[in-house]
């Protein structure tokens, strides 16, 4: 099955078994091991990447579905010395312990901030027709698809709160 995707700005053509998930294509065929395989069932969020700017679980997608898509992984967000603002905020707030969930947390945060900027409501949004104010409750709800088994949640929340410009 021949599929072409653009990963972190570079076009890549792969010819792999149709069973290959987007996550396995990234990790096993393109050597991009930043995206992690946690549960492999869409429950933990460690595999979160951005596809055409939207956050998804790369484990619950097969590569073939993404022909022509633009994929951004943690490796494409920033580099040592030139970190993405979300990476920088996680560093400054020490928003991790073991770090396994962190690439997914960061990609998810990038997607989530865009959703909020676009005015997408969440379960915590009181007025569905007003703008979004990223309160702590909003951030927690919007990030509930990313699990941290070290439970670094208070620091992850602090990092995202910095980016959202909300009072502490």
């Amino acid at each position: 099955m021949r599929t072409t995707i653009t990963v972190n700005g570079t076009a890549q053509t792969l010819d792999v078994d149709p069973r290959t998930t987007l996550l396995d294509a990234l990790r096993e065929h393109l050597g991009l091991t930043g995206s992690k395989k946690g549960c492999d069932h869409g429950q933990c969020g460690a595999c979160t990447v951005l596809v055409n700017g939207v956050r998804i679980n790369s484990c619950l997608s097969i590569l073939a579905m993404h022909d022509g898509d633009q994929v951004t992984t943690i490796e494409g967000l920033g580099q040592p010395g030139a970190l993405h603002p979300v990476q920088q905020a996680f560093l400054e707030r020490d928003a991790l312990q073991c770090g396994y969930c962190t690439p997914g947390q960061i990609c998810s945060t990038v997607g989530m901030l865009q959703e909020a900027a676009d005015g997408w409501a969440s379960r915590e949004t009181a007025d569905l027709t007003a703008g979004i104010s990223l309160t702590d409750a909003e951030i927690r709800e919007r990030m509930s698809g990313n699990i941290c088994r070290c439970s670094a949640y208070p620091q992850i929340l602090a990092a995202i709160r910095d980016l959202a410009g909300e009072p502490a």
Binding site: I56, L60, G111, S122, R123, L128, T129, S144
Partner: peptide, 29 residues
């Protein structure tokens, strides 16, 4: 669907229901 302005304004029960399910990543797919 949950984010669509006409749904949020006229069918809030539908937006509320969708946002009560799954995660942000799953609802995007």
């Amino acid at each position: 669907l949950a984010a669509h302005p006409k749904v949020r304004e006229r069918y809030p029960v539908l937006t509320r229901a969708i946002l009560a399910g799954a995660s942000g990543q799953l609802r995007n797919k």
